[in-house]
């Protein structure tokens, strides 16, 4: 058995990035993700990689763009208000089809909000977040181990599709310590012939998202949408618990999914047929899983969504269900998190 060590979510993400071959990290201080920036400041130079504390989130994401354009694995991290600032760069990265990993350890909003755990940036992460018709691949870990694992997936998917990937966690996940088995180092990096490495022996490469010629942008946008359709078709991921026989299915992601799991167990003890559907990819949203459930189930099934927000993923669940089943919701954000008792009470009402 591999040795387990205690690590916070923030540190586990940092160590995974180092092991996944992250060459460049730029960040800016903001709670509750500071331990990740500090971890990278310590670890990256040890591995002869680059760490830069940027002057702003705007600069940090642009530095990541430069490193990514150089063909290197690049990463930044922040928390909600900082991620808002990064949207400029994320849109450029998406438009220039550059891979990178962005970690958002979410806190309460809007505005400066507060530093308690929250899931209020779901819309921002899954809809694009910045200007233009684009998406980022969004992964939502629910444990320190999964946060570690999904960093590898995030880099790999991002490279494969040349699209930014986001790890969407909440403050609790970032701060929490759990036993972790670290991945052994592996570095199966794809070649990047588009990278800016100097034009020796080839024609010059250009990394850009600007199209001055008439029709050029529309052509590009169509290609981009095709890519997104491919991602939607191939990369939906979720975890299901007791889905086969359940009549009430809780839908939750990240830390909130763990609380939902306790609710499922409690309902089962009361003789209710309850299950959990936990999206792991938030974009692409695992809509096919809902389709399958609704197709299979002739008898009544209903969904109950719980989030540390006032109902954001809820909209994707409703879109997937499309009126074919009841969808109820309970969420809180900015202070307490939705507890087992509160959720149970609402389900049993």
């Amino acid at each position: 058995m591999s040795k387990k060590i205690l690590m916070t979510g923030n540190e586990a993400i940092g160590e995974a990035a180092v092991r996944a071959g992250c060459d460049f990290y730029a960040g800016y201080p903001i709670t509750p993700q500071n331990e990740l920036t500090a971890y990278m400041a310590k670890r990256m130079p040890e591995e002869n990689r680059v760490f830069v504390q940027a002057e702003s989130e705007l600069a940090a994401i642009s530095m990541v763009m430069g490193a990514s354009a150089s063909g290197r694995r690049a990463m930044t991290s922040s928390s909600s208000p900082g991620i808002s600032l990064k949207q400029e760069g994320i849109s450029y990265l998406a438009g220039a089809q550059l891979p990178c990993l962005i970690v958002n350890i979410m806190r309460g909003g809007p505005g400066l909000g507060n530093i308690v755990p929250a899931q209020s940036d779901y819309f921002q992460a899954t809809r694009g977040g910045g200007h233009g018709d684009y998406h980022c691949i969004v992964l939502a870990p629910c444990s320190v181990q999964e946060a570690h694992n999904l960093v590898f997936s995030g880099f790999a998917l991002s490279d494969k599709y040349r699209a930014p990937a986001i790890i969407l966690g909440d403050g609790m996940l970032g701060q929490m310590m759990e036993p972790l088995v670290v991945h052994s180092k592996k570095k199966n990096l794809s070649t990047k012939p588009w990278a800016l490495t100097g034009c020796k022996g080839r024609r010059p490469n250009i990394v850009k998202s600007f199209y001055m010629q008439e029709g050029g942008l529309e052509e590009f946008n169509k290609a981009l949408q095709k890519k997104y359709a491919r991602i939607k078709e191939k990369e939906q991921r979720f975890e299901g618990i007791h889905l086969d026989d359940s009549e009430i299915i809780l839908v939750a992601y990240g830390t909130q999914a763990r609380i939902a799991r306790v609710v499922v167990e409690a309902l089962r003890k009361k003789g209710k047929k309850a299950g959990l559907l936990r999206p792991v990819t938030l974009w692409p949203f695992p809509a096919d899983a809902f389709e399958e459930l609704l197709k299979k189930k002739r008898k009544k099934v209903r969904f109950f969504v719980t989030e540390m927000s006032y109902g954001q993923m809820l909209e994707d669940v409703r879109l997937a269900v499309n009126g074919r089943a009841a969808v109820d919701f309970y969420g809180r954000a900015g202070g307490g998190i939705p507890t087992e008792e509160e959720i149970l009470r609402r389900i049993l009402q």
């Binding site: 387990k4 205690l6 709670t31 509750p32 530093i115 403050g171 609790m172 701060q175 929490m176 310590m177 759990e178 036993p179």
Partner: peptide, 22 residues
């Protein structure tokens, strides 16, 4: 809390530790 968590891990228990932060 960390010492307790570390000891629990050493005894092959499952464990989580969450700080108040900020």
């Amino acid at each position: 809390g960390r010492v307790i968590a570390q000891a629990a891990l050493k005894e092959n228990r499952h464990v989580t530790w969450i700080p108040s932060y900020g």
